[in-house]
Design a protein around this nucleic acid. Structure first.
Length: 450
RNA sequence: AGGGGUGUAGCUCAAUUGGUAGAGUGUCCGACUGUUAAUCGGAAGGUUGGUGGUUCGAGUCCACCCACCCCUGCCA
């Protein structure tokens, strides 16, 4: 007799099996005990009548606290009253550890998230965090499968880097023997090296940003997937982002039905990803924002009125703010792609639009429901002289980036790619209020524990 | 970094113009039950984030500090 995972119990109806796990909840009386057991793969109720086991076992069952670790043997029974369709008649109970005063309670109340994050090492056992992290696992597997199936080579970038890749963001500085190093904020430049070697590569790993962001969309440590493809231009980059996002969402819809149900996620909000994503140029977006600002100001909806105040706050022709992105994304039921931003607000490596050199061949993908930017991508500057000029303009130290310039000296070709934030993508799929719920142990400006 | 806000029982929150610190939930004990957020009865649980001030009297008013949350900016 071997241990059976709870998710497989339905295959063992009529048999006597062993199940091991933790006590999720318990009810009982002097005559019958209901032990709700979880083992990470599911939940099942083990029913122990007083006559079903020894007196000592029955007594032990009646005294068990939440999260006690146990093994039970019992007969698998079909039962319509069970949420999973089966139950165990508990014939034997072995207590591995009896637990008292488990600190996290099982209620529908939403306690202080900060208090729960202090106990994250235990909180991951609870239903909702468990479901979110399961979706994350599926999403990451989907990402890996998508790139593998499409002929990409995994090309890992270093975490220690010599200096800023973009020259804008704040980096974490770490001592490195007698010198300084920085934690990577993007593997993209390394990805470009890989693209010239393998054609299609994908960088996938943790990324660090020392910006003191304090919003529900920001982590200081997050995972980013960054495909980079030789001979791919802006339209192709947008096609790639669209099909990758679609693949990941479809996979989660197929394989995470139970988890999304646990999270009370409105699935109908995710189904429109099957349709093509709208693509709008920055210039058209600006025109649309002028209209939307006027429209929202007159709206009866107080949320829209409030939003109207912040629309185009940076001024027409400047970078788009969060309100701008929200207003545009509200016009659609699926992610929207905004392309060809002003060069002044974007990174040095983005290629200028030949049709209008004030703009770059870059694209952001804005997710619905206020999650905001989940993808940022671009066609890269592939001309040696232009790139050198950009590096000088941005005051990027040449000695830390000369290797990158080499890529334009030895067989440069048009190429590009994008970066997708895994946590923001999961945040959108799960409908999470906070991005920090989408990673097992979030790192934010004020949190490095547990 | 700027703006706004919140700190009261393990957790979620009450407490009238400044006048004896309350409930729900969880925990513990008991009863009962094919229960599933069980139910019923009882008990324990507090230096009201900290320091100082005003006052006969401060959870409440004032100052400073601490912690955290939300928004903006930066970005994924």
């Amino acid at each position: 007799m071997a241990f059976v995972e709870i998710r497989d119990l339905h295959k063992h109806i009529g048999q006597t099996v062993d199940v091991r796990g933790w006590l999720y909840n318990k009810r009982g009386s002097g005559k019958i005990q209901f032990l709700q057991i979880r083992d990470g793969t599911g939940f099942v109720q083990a029913v122990m009548g007083k006559q079903d086991a020894t007196e000592a076992e029955f007594l032990a069952a009646s005294g068990l606290g939440i999260e006690s670790s146990i093994e039970v043997a019992g007969e698998v029974r079909e039962d319509k009253r069970s949420p999973i369709g089966v139950e165990l008649t508990c014939r034997r109970l072995k207590v591995l550890q009896e637990v008292k005063d488990y600190p996290i309670q099982i209620t529908k109340d939403v306690p202080n998230i900060d208090w729960l994050l202090d106990r994250r090492h235990l909180w991951v056992r609870s239903r909702k965090p468990h479901a979110i992290l399961k979706v994350r696992s599926e999403a990451v597997q989907a990402i890996r499968d998508f790139y593998y199936q499409n002929g990409f080579v995994l090309f890992d970038a270093p975490v220690f880097t010599p200096a800023s890749c973009e020259g804008t963001s704040t980096l974490f500085e770490v001592p490195y023997f007698d010198e300084k190093a920085y934690l990577t904020q993007s593997g993209q430049l390394y990805g470009e090296s890989g693209a010239m070697a393998f054609g299609k590569v994908v960088v996938f790993g943790p990324t660090f940003r020392a910006e003191k962001s304090k919003t529900r969309r920001h982590l200081t440590e997050f995972w980013m997937v960054e495909p980079e493809v030789a001979f791919l231009e802006l339209d192709g980059i947008m096609d790639l982002a669209e099909s990758q996002i679609r693949f990941v969402v479809q996979r989660c819809l197929e394989r995470c039905k139970e988890e999304l149900k646990t999270l009370e996620r409105d699935i109908s909000r995710l189904e429109p990803v099957a349709k093509p994503f709208p693509r709008i140029s920055y210039k058209d977006a600006q025109k649309r924002l002028v209209e939307l600002k006027a429209e929202f100001e007159k709206s009866a909806d107080p949320d829209k009125q409030k939003l109207a105040k912040d629309i185009l706050k940076n001024g027409l022709g400047d970078d788009m703010g969060a309100a701008d992105e929200t207003a545009i994304s509200m016009q659609y039921d699926r992610p929207v792609m905004i392309h060809r931003y002003p060069a002044a607000v974007k990174a040095f490596y983005m290629k200028r639009d030949p049709a209008d050199p004030e703009y770059v061949l870059g694209v952001d993908v804005i997710a619905p429901e206020g999650v905001g930017e989940i993808v940022g991508g671009a066609q890269r500057e592939d001309d040696l002289e232009v790139l050198l000029a950009r590096i000088r303009e941005h005051n990027i130290p040449m000695e830390s980036i000369d290797w990158y310039v080499d890529l334009r000296r030895f067989g440069t070709v048009p190429h590009g790619g994008f970066g997708m934030g895994v946590e923001r993508c999961v945040q959108w799929i799960c409908g999470c209020e906070h991005v920090r719920e989408t990673i097992p142990f979030p790192r934010t400006i004020y949190r490095t524990k547990p």
